[in-house]
């Protein structure tokens, strides 16, 4: 399961800038620490950001490490959003972490099932997650354990369905005529 994370980075080392090398070192260090927590850690390749796939069960542990470990120091949660994969019956939750001290960014991705999606809330670690998780609940229907105030944020409390899911249908949706 554990893929060697940065083969490609190292092989292209001659062309890479010092910043890229630093990034590679950072990623190695990061993956080493994450593998200890979660054996399913993988690097998400098709991303312009440094991004790591982790498993659902290890989310809270990984997040706590990333927030509290002074090597990483990810003190801000930039955004939290979801990619919907209806064919694969899963949703991919993305957390973009940001470190104001190290100006480093990291995208964490977690897959949850589409039927009964549930994740642990990270609002204890980053206060802003309270609203971001409410937004994700509102738009995708993912529920969060231990969230202090989980309810819809933009839509009415009695809204049916979760609009940003790919299979959402609604009579007011704009369809282009071609």
């Amino acid at each position: 399961m554990t893929t060697p994370p940065n083969d490609s980075t190292q092989s292209s080392a001659p062309q890479s800038t010092p910043a890229d090398e630093l990034k590679a070192i950072f990623l190695t260090c990061l993956l080493d620490s994450l593998i200890a927590l979660d054996s399913g850690v993988k690097v998400r390749e098709d991303s312009s950001l440094m991004s790591v796939k982790i498993s659902e069960s290890a989310l809270l542990k990984v997040m706590t490490l990333l927030k509290q470990d002074s090597r990483f120091d990810f003190d801000q949660l930039q955004f939290h959003t979801v990619l919907d994969w209806p064919e694969e019956q899963r949703m991919e939750c993305l957390y973009l972490l940001n470190s104001t001290k190290k100006s480093q960014e990291l995208l964490i991705s977690v897959s949850v099932s589409r039927e009964k999606p549930q994740l642990p809330s990270v609002s204890k670690l980053w206060a802003i997650a309270e609203w971001q998780e409410r937004e994700v609940y509102d738009m995708f229907g993912i529920t969060y354990e231990n969230h202090p105030d989980l309810r819809r944020i933009f839509l009415d409390d009695d809204w049916q369905g979760f609009p940003l899911r790919k299979d959402y249908q609604d009579e007011f949706m704009l369809r282009k005529p071609w």
Binding site: Y168, Q169, D170, M173, R175, P177
Partner: peptide
């Protein structure tokens, strides 16, 4: 004239 049937608004959920 312009829009074929495909432009029918999606059926409600």
């Amino acid at each position: 004239q312009v829009f074929p049937e495909t432009t029918q608004i999606g059926a409600p959920q």
